[in-house]
């Protein structure tokens, strides 16, 4: 019971003592405790223990935090796999709740939110897109937090037929190379890493989105492509990732926020807490996101 009181009190606490580090640590710990108790409550009335990453200790006795209804989450397409898994975990932890997702390009989602879509949680693929919704200098509970980072990797087909070892190989005209078009975020990131390396790439195709680049690598139609680390992992055995030092020149940040006029405010905050919890970080890290 006390834990749950802390959960509901948390936003205000976080708001008041946002700037100080100890307060942030405390807030994070409370968040973690909330996640643990959530996982512990996953069984609802059933007596059996609930196994869940992050829920190591014995289940504290207590009722669920009385969350109910639908939580509507708008999230960048790159979060489809991880957030779907976390949505199931959330519904299991809070019987009676339903998490409804809309996955799309984050700028399209931002436009929908600005147009009045009733949304509880927004997770964007860049701080710039998030700023479209929250404004440049948000205050109070609207402050988005970066919960995951992603970086580019060279993706090559299994077996690495083009014998690619680094970014410099993507400048060889003989090699088939796919990049994102500079007009889309992954293409802008690619341009940044090539600029940082002082190289001019020799692409054969400039794709509309990162998944199209990944598909061409998976099918072996290109010898190399630049995609996000998470895409390399999503590609499974068909794709191998090659890290390169210049990737630090274009690290993407994914911020999340419980929107101020969320129709289901308590559940919105609980979902954000879940994403930032040990369980959430484990899911994101397994998918290749940098959560450190």
């Amino acid at each position: 019971m006390r834990l749950h009181a802390a959960c509901t009190a948390r936003p205000r606490l976080a708001q008041r003592a946002r700037a100080t580090r100890p307060a942030r640590v405390a807030s994070a710990m409370i968040g973690l405790a909330c996640a643990l108790s959530m996982a512990a409550c996953a069984g609802g009335g059933s007596p059996g223990p609930v196994s869940s990453p992050g829920a190591g200790g014995p289940a504290p006795a207590g009722a669920s935090p009385h969350l109910s209804g639908t939580v509507t989450v708008f999230a960048a397409a790159s979060l489809t796999g991880t957030f779907t898994a976390l949505g199931h975990a959330f519904e299991a932890a809070h019987p009676g709740t339903t998490v409804r997702f809309s996955f799309a390009g984050s700028s399209a989602l931002a436009q929908q939110i600005l147009a009045g879509a009733p949304v509880d949680v927004f997770a964007a693929a860049s701080p710039e897109t998030m700023a479209l919704v929250t404004g440049a200098a948000p205050t109070g509970r609207e402050v988005p937090v970066v919960f995951a980072r992603n970086r580019l990797e060279i993706a090559v087909p299994a077996g690495n037929p083009g014998r690619v070892t680094g970014l410099v190989d993507l400048t060889r005209p003989a090699l088939r190379v796919a990049l994102c078009a500079p007009q889309v975020p992954c293409g802008a990131a690619a341009a940044a890493v090539f600029a940082a390396a002082g190289l001019t790439p020799a692409p054969d195709t400039l794709e509309q989105d990162v998944k199209a680049v990944l598909t061409k690598v998976e099918l072996g139609e290109v010898d190399a492509g630049l995609v996000y680390r998470t895409d390399v992992i999503a590609g499974g055995d068909a794709v191998r990732g090659i890290d390169f030092p210049q990737s630090s020149a274009a690290v993407t940040e994914d911020p999340i926020v419980a929107l101020p006029d969320a129709p289901n405010a308590a559940a919105a905050q609980a979902f954000v807490d879940l994403v930032r919890s040990a369980q959430g970080r484990a899911v994101l890290a397994a998918a290749g996101f940098d959560v450190g």
Partner: peptide, 8 residues
């Protein structure tokens, strides 16, 4: 866009 890609 799937078969031929996109290059100016």
């Amino acid at each position: 866009i799937t078969f031929a890609g996109s290059f100016p």
